[in-house]
Each structure stands twice: as structure tokens, then as C-alpha cells.
Amino acid sequence: MDGGVLVEGLVKVYGEIEAVRDVSFDVEPGEVMGLLGPNGAGKTTTMRVLASVIRPTAGRAIVNGADVVRERDRVRRSVGYLPERSGLPARMTGERYLTMFARLHGLADPEGRAREVARELGISDRLGSKLGSLSKGLKRRVAIARALVHDPPVLLLDEPTSGLDPISRAQVLDLIARQAAEGKAVLVSSHVLSEMERICTRVCLISRGRVLARGPLDEVRSSAGRPVLRLRARMAGDLVPLLEAALREARLAVRLRDLNGVVEVDPIGGPGDLRSAAAVVLRRLLDEGVVPDLFEIHRPTLEEAFVALVGGAARAGDLGAAG
């Protein structure tokens, strides 16, 4: 797969521990794929295999058309890898460090490229400082610059925004999106699911080394449930019986739930029913002279999908273990 990543049946065993079990996914050039999972899920192990830092026990991983076991050198030239720990030598300056990596990748003008990538990351003014003296956020940016210095077609970013302040985080996310827009295949792992929702086109959710869900963002999100109508309104009487009556009259099959003052209308039928229910509810409220404080179609977030899938898998695992 030229320019992208293909993982098929990947297995990695450390002694007795199966860190990754039969993981498969792919990353197309020009897309950002999120690798999600709780701590110890196998994300970092998968990243390390793809960066050819460790060898898989079984399965196949192809990065930019090169096999991670047989063509390690080609893989390393194709990959910009940001490990979870920035791993910067404290006594070296940023400029020397980036230049060294540019040189290791055999670039023609290593100093020039180091300065260029530092400018892109907004760290030019701190390039002369010793890396040990930089803040955590700046260190992370230097580490990202290191991953980008050879302009690789594939980026593997393990927790790229960890330790960054909100502004730096937003800048890094924009940078990742820009890299994908330029045609790079980007695999990102993170615990901050709202960030993943912002930049990923597809996600692969793993837990205990196994893939729980994989696919476009909407598809994975929908595994947490259907979109629902949520509303809150201040009125003299009880809101729920009023809405029940209105929806019954409209012959719509819905489930109503009161969640601490927020009423959730869950249409059993489908998206068409949701729209109809929203129209009926709004009309009835306005007829009663009630203006709702909150009136929204709530779609399941990635976080809700994550909790549902990982929690479900953990319960199934526990039950399996108990059985």
C-alpha cells in the first residue's frame, strides 16, 4: 500500500502477555485515522511495530509499501514517529537535535530543513536552547518537529497533544489536519476523544489488544445508540406527561426519560421519527406558551461510544473469565 498503512492480523506477545491480538486496519494517504483505547490496550505496541522499533510476533504490517520486518530501513525512511515520551536529550540544543535527525535521514541541507520545520512548529526562537531547559509543551513540539523533519509520507503520532496547553493543542491538531490534507497518512492515538473527533475521518478502537470497532467516525459513534432529542423547559406542570400525550396523539413510538430535569426523547422508529417527534414536541410547547431552555438533537459522542464499547467488552471479558 504505497503512501499508506496496512495492518493484517497483527499479534505481539511479550512473554506470557498478548499485548496485541489479531489487529487489522488500514490508513489511506490523506486521512487521519484515530487509534483509540484505554491504557494498556495495545496502542503503543501497535505504533512501535509500525515504526519498526519492535517486531510483530505474527501478522503483517505494511507501511508505504514496505514490510516492517523485512524492509525496516525503508519503513524508517517513510515514517515520522512520535512516541508517547518525547525522549529528547537534555544537553543538546533543539537546532543540533533536529539537524542530527535530518542528517540521519540523509537530507541534502540538514540545517536548513531543521530551521524550516522549526518555523512550521513555531519553535524557531527557542532552537538555540538546551532541550532540557524547555517547557513540556515546547519539548513536545520539538519531538513533533523531529517526526516531520524528513517530510515522511506516513505519520505515527502517539498522544501528540499530551502535556500541551489548549492553544498549543489546537495548533498541533491543525498541523495534523494540514499534514493529512497534504496527502500524508496519519495514525494518531490519544485519550482525548473530543480531539480525535475533530481531526479523524476513521477510528479503530482497541481494548486488551483486540479491535472492538473500526470504521468511519459516524459509524463507530452510532454504536453507542441512536440520536435523541434532549430538551429542558420551565413550566408549571410536569413536562413528561404533556409530551407523552402529544406524541401519542401524533402516533409516534418513542421512549421518554427524565435525566435530572432534561427530558430525553428517544424515537424507536428511526431518524424520520426523530424529526417528526421534534416538530410535535416543539409545537406543543409553543402552544402551551413554554419556551424551552434546551432543545437539541443529541448524537452519541465518540466518548459515549468508547465507554459503551470498552465497558461492554470489559464486562463480557469479566463474565467470560467468571464463566
Partner: peptide, 13 residues
């Protein structure tokens, strides 16, 4: 210990 080996080994070295 310093975590500097991993990025080094992800380069063609």
C-alpha cells in the same frame, strides 16, 4: 531510561 532510544531507532540507523 531517558526515552531517547526509541526515536533514534525509528530513524534509519
Amino acid at each position: 531510561e531517558g526515552g531517547t532510544l526509541e526515536p533514534l531507532l525509528s530513524a534509519p540507523v
